[in-house]
Design a protein around this nucleic acid. Sequence first.
RNA 1: GGGCGGAUAGCUCAGUUGGGAGAGCGCUGCCCUUACAAGGCAGAGGUCACAGGUUCAAUCCCUGUUCCGCCUACCA
Length: 914
Amino acid sequence: MTISQLDKTYDPKAVEDRWSREWIDRGYFRADAKTHPGQPYCIVIPPPNVTGSLHVGHALNHSLQDILIRWRRMQGRNTLWLPGTDHAGIATQNVVEKQLMAEGLSRESLGREQFVERVWQWKATSGNTIVNQQKQLGESCDWDRLRFTMDDGLSKAVIEVFVRLYEDGLIYRGERLINWCPRCLTALSDIEVEHEEVKGKLYHLRYPLADDPNTGLIVATTRPETMLGDTAVAVHPDDPRYRHLIGKKVRLPLTTREIPIVGDSILVDLEFGTGAVKITPAHDFNDYEAGERHGLPRLAVLDHAALLDAAGMQQAAVESSVVEMLRGLPVPKARPKVEALLREQGLLEKTEDHKMAIGKCYRCKTVVEPYLSPQWFVKVQPLADPAIKAVEEGRIRIIPEGWVNNYLGWMRDIKDWCISRQIWWGHQIPAWYCLTCNSRQIVTVDGRTTILQGAVPIISKLTPAGCPTCHGQHLLRDPDVLDTWFSSALWPFTTLGWPEQTPELKTYYPTSTLVTGLDILFFWVARMIMMGLKFMGDVPFKDVYIHALVRDAEGQKMSKSKGNVIDPLHVMDQFGTDALRFTLASMASPGRDIKLAEERIEGYRNFANKIWNAARFCLMYLDGPKFSKPPAELGLPNRWVLSRLNHTIKVVTVELEAYRFDRASNALYQFIWHEYCDWYLELIKPAIQDPTHPFGPETRSTLIETFETTMRLLHPFMPFITEEIWQTIPHQGESIVIQSFPMPNMAWNAPEAEAVYTLLEQTVSLVRTGRTLLNYPPGQQITYWVAHEDQVEQRHLELTHRHLGHLSRGTAEVKPTKEWPVQKLLRLVNEGLSVGIVVSGDVDLKKAIERLGKQLAETDKELQRVDGKLKNAEFVSKAPPDVITEHQERVRTLSRDRALLAHSQQQLRTMLGS
RNA sequence: GGGCGGAUAGCUCAGUUGGGAGAGCGCUGCCCUUACAAGGCAGAGGUCACAGGUUCAAUCCCUGUUCCGCCUACCA
């Protein structure tokens, strides 16, 4: 084995592709539901959109899952990480429609069947992008089980669930006011609408009283154009200004209608605006409900594209000149016209600036319109109740706990879920209508067929042969598809084979952990819990770990339009996949967003290189006799490093169990760089570089044992470099992927070795400081004296003697201070430890004097503080005894230090003077 | 409007049974010392947001304030 096997610098590119392929080829990630003896550990991946490519949010989400899975696999658990993608109805349809547009085609021109075929083609060619990128990240998924939400099996399950929910009365169809994207031309669920605060205007409109046109009721609105569809005005029943008007009518401007004034204490806030509210049930959610309460008609004046609709306006008795002026206009153009018309008639009392929230489509950012249309809904309350209980009772843990209230609050106030989408890509709703029986409920206007809410559906898993009522053969299938989240809500059990009772389902359900971002807690997590409980009778997972959002270095949300996106693939190419993974893990502190800057990743690239060079070092000196001994019989460096390694193993394990990826990775970083490389490797150099050194055999043996163990400990975080190195150093087995994760070993604990080491480190550090103060070059051999005021520590110091000379490049004399020379000595002090460096030659002592002065001042300050506390009678009488003892101890040490420092400084002054 | 989180070194962040303020990066100085210059060593740098309170003792617990995020909501 020679050093030439490893290059001087770690080159991630040279190893990553090779290993990610090799691991998959060798089948290490394949789960075995039937014969694996280990306790199951299963994660289902939050399926990325099939349109997607790996962004840094995925990289975080997937890195954390991979850490958990690799860790559990190494622990011997029966692991399954189940990958897949989501058909992302609206997003995917948008992508393909854009393509068609570029070809001068449209989905309408292709027709539904051909269009869907086209999307499948698209999926076949482009849908694997993200999967390949995931493999690049090293994700140890069982790729043979890759699922897609539109697979046959999953589609069958979706239909099964729909039918069963319908039969249980938990799915219904009805005309409601829903969120509608006028660009995507589909309904959206409440949570698919993003709210954004904008500066708008509050318009004060005067509606003349029908029986007293000179008197007007002034209403306030942010959307004046909708006034054409007003069907009432509401005032508060307790409002002395207006309550006498309740029951009277106003003349609705720009129309020939008169509308009633109603009293409504829910809709009207006495304090706000004018205290009078116009009611437009067809275009506003509150007004819709108010309309229900008062039995008001609903007049829609906007069409499905959010354009002013001539037919609707005519029905609303809008003056024909107004209809002509507005027909076909989008809202932003219609509004100023309505405003001008009202102003002309003196009915626009005033406008004022007003902050308000508008809803936008989460897929295309178009302003969403409340739109009256027949849709399918899930009645959620009965499903939510058990889902609330599951979290309350701790059958599902949400980590960090802070999000529990968020979840419970949303679930307790949950509203019915609109699940129908007016698009073509997705699971088509298994509902058919008999054209004969529903002839009056199915109407076609301008080529758009609408199935009105009274239509009677036939719900069936298979295409029905005919109408069960009239036996007619002319059936129309409901054209709507289901919300994509409807199928992803079933993900944890449909991917395992449900509704079939497969061995996988039996072994891996409930899954162990769900790792996800907060943004889909409601979209996805909550719904999985509801559906899991409903159809499996058990929770879908035991732990939900919610991680942070990744932002840019300034804390801005990353977005393509801002151009601040960090592309993980670029980063992986530049710094290595392990560096990116480790960065994300180390920054994954709970409850805080990750501000990612490339310098961080670079820092961990350096860390990888450090490990690489440590491996080169090992390989250089491994040749030679090896002999392993019981830990207690080893020399100091070996005993110490085993003890520290043992500690690190414990920390990493405990922190991973608590999902503290940040702490686990920081513990690894600290140990590997600042204990193993900085100190251990330096300490053992004499023993392994001298072939005849008595400690050589045990040291080589410990070196390889600790290094190999450290690679296994690090492997879940940095899979590639650890595999590459592990293969090069002596090892047993064919891959680190399937080795065991290190376990704490009581025999490795060596508190005394740690204490001795601490003293050694302090001493060396003091000597180096002295060397700097005296401007001795690093190579110059120096002579110095070491002592400790404490007798136990003094004995410990004697044990460090063997290592002092080597680490400090000098000759150390460990002797009580009274035996030290009195002349020509720079004496440095730290907590009872004294180091005296022989001053030789022509050196500038000013720096040293300054430094002593500074330390003296600091010591004084601290001494006063601690001593002050001890002089406080209340402290002495009330503080616990051990705290008091500790303070007294400190005062003693500080006073001693102080005296020594002063003496040392005096001595230097004398030298300077002479 | 409601809820939650944050405010600690120049930057990004750790820091729970309250008792001597930490890391990484950056910065300064010295070193190409045969594992590593993607490195080594030594250093500078902080009234722990502000104001009160509890306590012998507060970065930590309580109250209020300011600022910044996020979630949520029907103030037209």
